[in-house]
């Protein structure tokens, strides 16, 4: 009997598949990224989420994000970003076991500044969690950004003015009730600017298709 080329091809294919099926693929996969590479990556802007950007997602109720507050229990109960979950820095390595954590969502780390969040970021990356970002400037910057936004000075562009107005309007929501009381009067006047829909963080990847 003659064996056709097609049969040989199919057999090789299935053999390759069989090897894959019994190979330890999933254990090989979690390779540690060297700390040096991560430290270099931490310098890049792409790792950080800007406060305004995050505020916009919260307003849009973007289902694809989750914010992890890694400060102390006291700080968290004092004030925290709306919708954020509390995972103290000390327990960050157990995040995967936490019920609150959803690995399919983009995780944004919020600390007081950048340092702690940066350390947590490296730790999580080495644990193999890939969709992790840092809130630029942390809660300190966040509060400053929304409690007392600086009016653009001199010749300003429309964009700068919009940013200012957005911060002013978003402030009430972003800072919660505790801090908004003082500026209640102003804030009710300030009409929130129409929300410009923004797709979830453009991942700089083009969709593929045939």
């Amino acid at each position: 009997m003659q064996i056709s080329l097609k049969t040989i091809g199919f057999s090789i294919l299935l053999l390759l598949g069989l090897i894959l099926a019994f190979s330890p693929l999933d254990t090989v996969r979690k390779e540690q990224i060297p700390t040096k590479t991560l430290l270099e990556e931490l310098q890049k802007e792409s790792v950080y989420v800007q406060a305004d950007e995050l505020a916009q997602w919260i307003i849009d109720k973007d289902p694809g994000i989750q914010i992890a507050d890694i400060r102390s229990e006291k700080d968290f109960s004092n004030y925290h970003i709306p919708e954020s979950i509390h995972i103290p820095f000390g327990q960050i390595e157990n995040i995967e076991k936490s019920d609150l954590f959803d690995e399919t969502k983009m995780l944004i780390l919020a600390s007081n500044g950048n340092t702690r969040a940066g350390q947590a970021w490296i730790l999580l990356k080495q644990l193999g969690i890939k969709d992790v970002y840092i809130l630029a400037g942390g809660l300190n910057h966040w509060v400053q950004n929304f409690s007392n936004p600086e009016h653009p000075k001199g010749a300003y562009t429309d964009d700068e003015l919009f940013t200012y107005q957005f911060r002013k309007a978003a402030g009430t929501v972003m800072l919660g009730q505790t801090l908004s009381v003082a500026q209640d009067n102003k804030a009710t006047d300030a009409k929130p600017k129409p929300i410009r829909r923004k797709r979830k963080k453009a991942k700089k990847k083009v969709d593929e298709g045939c």
């Binding site: 299935l14 390759l16 598949g17 069989l18 894959l20 099926a21 019994f22 190979s23 693929l25 996969r29």
Partner: peptide, 15 residues
Amino acid sequence: ISSGIVAFIILLAAV
């Protein structure tokens, strides 16, 4: 299930 098994199933489907 393991990715190897999924790959094998997809190969079977392809053939």
